[in-house]
């Protein structure tokens, strides 16, 4: 067993717990149809136990990072998640990723579209600095059009200010 794998599995129990609690309140998750199906498999499914599966990526590696209000700067927690995403993408070159940028509802529609694009690009740029080929990464912004949480309070807004890395089969463009 390589040291990298050891690290992953050591971290896994806590991450699974976190992913399960997140999944409980995030049924409205918005990715491609593929992504919803994969998430539907659940963190405890056989697929998620396979470290090379997108289900593992979504639930164990962590498919999303969160942002501060009106910001696209990556927090330390976000960078840690993206480091793990980059390692997974490098380990699994048969997959590519679409990075969805989102904003909370506290902003005007078109500005939030631009803000979502900025967030998605911040994630893409970081993954590229970690060695993931640009050709395997695409971005899209949903602005405030696809909230994950629907209350009008900060508890929801902080989950909506996100960039979600949606894995799909294929080596990219």
């Amino acid at each position: 067993m390589t040291p990298i794998l050891t690290t992953r599995f050591a971290a896994r129990a806590a991450l699974v717990a976190a992913a399960l609690s997140l999944a409980a309140c995030s049924q409205g998750g918005f990715g491609g149809d593929d992504a919803i199906e994969l998430r539907g498999g659940g963190a405890g499914s056989g697929a998620a136990s396979d470290p090379s599966s997108p289900a593992y990526f979504n639930s164990v590696v962590g498919d999303r990072v969160l942002f501060e209000v009106d910001q696209s700067t990556l927090t330390a927690a976000a960078r840690a998640t993206l480091d793990a995403q980059a390692r997974w993408l490098l380990d699994n070159p048969e997959y590519s990723a679409l990075i969805e940028g989102h904003a909370d509802e506290q902003g005007t529609r078109e500005y939030n579209l631009a803000l979502g694009a900025r967030r998605a690009s911040a994630v893409r740029d970081y993954l590229v600095t970690q060695g993931v080929p640009d050709s395997r990464l695409r971005t899209i912004s949903y602005g405030k059009e696809r909230p994950l949480e629907i209350c009008s309070e900060e508890a929801c807004y902080r989950q909506n200010r996100r960039a979600v890395t949606v894995i799909s089969a294929g080596p990219g463009v």
């Binding site: 696209s72 078109e110 579209l113 631009a114 694009a117 900025r118 967030r119 998605a120 690009s121 911040a122 893409r124 740029d125 971005t139 912004s141």
Partner: peptide, 9 residues
């Protein structure tokens, strides 16, 4: 109109 390129609009 606006055009976004590399995160910049």
């Amino acid at each position: 109109f606006s055009l976004e390129d590399g995160g910049n609009t």
